[in-house]
Simulated assay, not measured.
Amino acid sequence: MSAETSAETESDRTTEGPTASASDLDVAALTRYLDGRLPGFDAAEPLQVDLLAGGRSNLTFRIRQSGGDWALRRPPLGHVMASAHDMGREYRVQSGLNMVDFPAPTMRLLCTDHEVLGADFYVMDFVTGRVLSTAEDTAALTPEQRRTLSAHHLDTLTQLHGLDLTAAGLDQLGKPTGYVRRQIRRWTGQWETTKTRELPALGELAGWLTDRGPKVPDLGATLVHGDFRMDNMVVDPATYRPIAVLDWEMSTLGDPIADLAVVLVYWTEPGDRLRRDLPVSPDVTTAPGFFTRDEVAEYYARVTGRDLSQLDFHVALACFKLAVIMESIRYRILAGMQRGISASDADEMGRATEALIEIGLRATRIGGVAALGS
């Protein structure tokens, strides 16, 4: 990924759908549709189209001309899993965030007429900034800048979890109770439909979560992102403040500690062993100056005042969810649902699945933060 971009994430580059290119966008049909609907758009002027980062899942195209610079987001080409890639949901959530001054791309229009591009799509303003997705991206920062970035990252998370959902029009986005039980059911079901082999350890982790889930109290629902991590946001290259948080596909109403747990799973530290088998945001936060995982949890608790007594459970649940996602990617690779992918990529996803299961089981025994350092 380019360090300067608007909207494309690791999950977008590693999920189902044939490899796409800019030529996969029907520019003529799009031009006819946007004419008179998109402010600043001129149907008489050629439209420059670029596919961002090659996306194999939700595809993001940069479309521009002299009067404007936008991003168009649509589902992947080819096979689309049921209930996934809901463009209307992404548009609704981000439109609500626009209403309450949360850093998200500005939404412009949603199209549900499949006669235009063959699928739902939406158009938003292109956001220029930096996406930090690798160790190389953060290597040039000073320790002070890395610490500032850590704080800004968590401040954005706490802002998200403190939003007035009614003011954002998102108070009916999901059910305010039962989040944990629904998550366990969802990801257990997903495992059964996409597993490529029997993994008894996954069953052990699922059993522990199923047993413990009903005992986890509902402490009040907030908007949760579901995949909150460093490379799912665009930051200002001068201040390292987030300009826009991206990839709202898994957002819903739920327990905010679930989001914190996902942040911790993606956070890296020197000496991590199992975490290195997860090919997402590799070593982005390992360099000196970044918060440690303990500091991440302490900072969040201090700013929000939230009870973290169920954090170990949520780390185990996050590992379970991400393990199922990695196995789903492996399934799609082995099933030939992605072009240009080798067997080594399937092997990498397999190792990621196994590592996440092991971390999740360790979280049930020695605690979530400690397990992540294994």
Rank of each mutant, 00 (worst) to 15 (best):
D42C: 04
P46T: 02
D50R: 14
D50Y: 07
L51A: 07
L51Y: 06
L51H: 09
L52P: 11
G54F: 00
G54P: 08
G55L: 08
R56W: 04
T60H: 02
F61S: 06
R62M: 06
R62N: 14
I63Q: 00
R64G: 11
Q65M: 13
S66H: 05
S66V: 12
L72I: 06
L72M: 03
R74D: 07
R74H: 10
G78V: 01
M81P: 14
A82D: 12
S83G: 11
S83N: 13
S83R: 11
D86P: 05
D86A: 08
D86L: 10
D86I: 06
D86K: 03
R89C: 07
E90H: 00
S95W: 12
N98T: 13
V100F: 00
D101R: 08
F102R: 09
P103W: 05
A104F: 01
A104W: 00
L110Q: 02
D113R: 03
E115G: 15
E115V: 02
E115T: 09
V116W: 00
V116S: 04
V116A: 09
L117Q: 01
D120I: 05
D120Q: 07
Y122M: 08
Y122G: 04
M124T: 07
M124P: 12
D125Q: 01
F126R: 11
V127L: 08
R130M: 15
R130Y: 14
V131C: 12
L132M: 07
S133N: 14
T134R: 10
E136T: 15
D137Q: 11
A139S: 11
L141M: 09
Q145G: 15
H152A: 08
H152C: 15
H152I: 12
H153S: 15
L157M: 10
L160S: 04
G162W: 02
G162F: 06
T166R: 15
L170D: 00
D171I: 14
Q172G: 12
G174E: 00
K175Q: 11
P176K: 09
P176N: 01
Y179A: 14
Y179L: 07
V180N: 02
V180D: 04
V180F: 08
R181S: 14
R181I: 13
R181H: 10
R181W: 14
